[in-house]
Design a protein around this nucleic acid. Sequence first.
RNA 1: GCUGGCGUAGCUCAAUUGGCAGAGCAACUGAUUUGUAAUCAGUAGGUUGGGGGUUCAAUUCCCUCCGCCAGCUCCA
Length: 599
Amino acid sequence: MGKENLEIISRDGTLSEVPRSDAALDMLRHSTAHLMALAVIELYPDVELGIGPATSEGFYYDFKTSHSFTEEDLVLIEKKMKKLASANIRFEPSIVSKEEAVELFSKRNEKLKLELIKDREDETLSCYQLGNLVDFCLGPHVASTRELGVYKLLSVAGAYWKGDDTRDQMQRIYGTAFFSRDDLQEYLKRQEEAKKRDHRKLGRALNLFSIDENVAPGLIFWHPDGATLRNLVENFLREELEKSGYQFVVTPHIAKSDLWKTSGHYSYFRENMYTLPMEEEEYVLKPMNCPGHILIYKSDIRSYRDLPIRYAEFGTVYRYEKSGTLHGMLRVRGFTQDDAHIFCTPDQVADEVVNTLDLAEHILNSFGFKDFSVTLSVWDPDSPKAYAGEPEDWAMAENVLIDVLEKKGWDYKREAGEAAFYGPKIDIHLIDALGRSWQLSTFQFDFNLPGRFGVNYIGSDSKPHNVVMIHRALLGSMERFVGILTEHYAGAFPLWLSPLQAMILPISDKHHDYAVEIEKKISAAGIRCKSDLRNEKIGYKIREAQVKKVPFMLILGDKEEEAGNISVRSRTGGDLGSASVEEFIVQVMELVSSKEVNS
RNA sequence: GCUGGCGUAGCUCAAUUGGCAGAGCAACUGAUUUGUAAUCAGUAGGUUGGGGGUUCAAUUCCCUCCGCCAGCUCCA
């Protein structure tokens, strides 16, 4: 690994050198995936090959075989890879016609590869041969196994062929590769660090929440500190929404199934809904808040002069999520959305969406999130059954959202087939401690529900017109948001969000009265504080407060009591020396109101 | 839901081939009255996820249900 450049071979056979870069790393990983596939077919000749791309974290290859790969197998495969690579095998490209490819892969009995070849429209395609392995692949690849860096196989898991849960399940082996050993070590170390900030671990350590797996899987019990954090988030958001022209409403948690038949959820969302049979009737535990808001809108005749109307609710919904999908606070079965529905005229839609995106950006920034990814989810015209509404509506709605995104200047990824059944949407995703992406904010265009419910307004022509509805959530759900927040800050929440802002630590019993006096003064100023009056050494109390990531520790002993002041220690800066109570209060209040994240 | 792994004290984990279920931390009690990341001693804590089976004997082997973890599918 002495040289800086990577020798690569493109599919027409040209050799060239490229410098180390992200693109080169992808190539390296993709080539490593081929080497792994070669090792696997050498060791397990009966496997059928699926696909083996590079990913943002490494690479994988999918195999179909009756053998279940184990951790021990991974060790063997890795050894085999090293052995094969030491022979310095070359990646040899060739361009073949479709017929030749079909013949070649038929001979090799690679049925899945044949399916992929047949799916392709091109008349020719390129193959790469590596030893005994032939794979069809666009390349480019590294020129030979000598160019490969350091690699490590990580795990094995099931994965559906072509991502389709009605097709065969393959065995996917994940691995990663880097240019150097140091890079690999750094990656593995980062993974370890990330595990430490997993919200499930921190949630327990900081006593924020629990899940009783026997009684209520996928449902959150918010402990006092977690509930405090949640309330702080909600309060901030409520103020911001009220400033932005939203009105808060509250709607029932259950309603007769008729409502959900009208809304269409009963036919499109049935498998996710909890139903409650009651004598002759069936009730549904609400999986969404929209119908409730629509009923409030419809409780009166609305004029175009009333629009836009923006109803907000911290609406708790329940959805039956498949057992294998639950994940701490990030994927649950009962959650509270910071939901809102905007009812407006077609002319107002674009402005409303822009304003909402601006608001989302402001809110997320306030919580310290600066980086996120944006997707535009549109329907899949090939499976219209999964969606309500006409093709022209879908095209129109999509164009509105594209215009808005362009006006906003955000980079986004368009994803076909990812829309809600009632309309296309823009989503904002954040990444968790372990690199998984979670959808938080969502902005959904809906031209279906208003029609189904007959939601309209009286225009200037004194005739009724269909209203346009926007569903939006900025934080997504309180559960997911608090989970992400916990991981983002590794539990050391910004001062304004810390459930406990200051821990008062008297040195010994004789300072208890003074501690209580200080506690009264500080909490009267609105600072969340507690006194640790246990009979422990000061070092022990400090350690505990530090482990609980309390922003400030106030140490009180003879010195402080005599001088009538306090000693301040911060969780990040250590001993800050003495200060008067008043100075401390002023400084804390400033940090709180500025929503300082580094405090 | 699917594939694979796993389930032992509140937490993190032990327990030769089936043979009396343990440790550290936390908790509780007592001593200690402490100056910026762990004082000492003692006590208590378990239907080994639930149910069934094999066996003289099951944490260990088998079946089944529940749940958790990773990934897939799905999703705020």
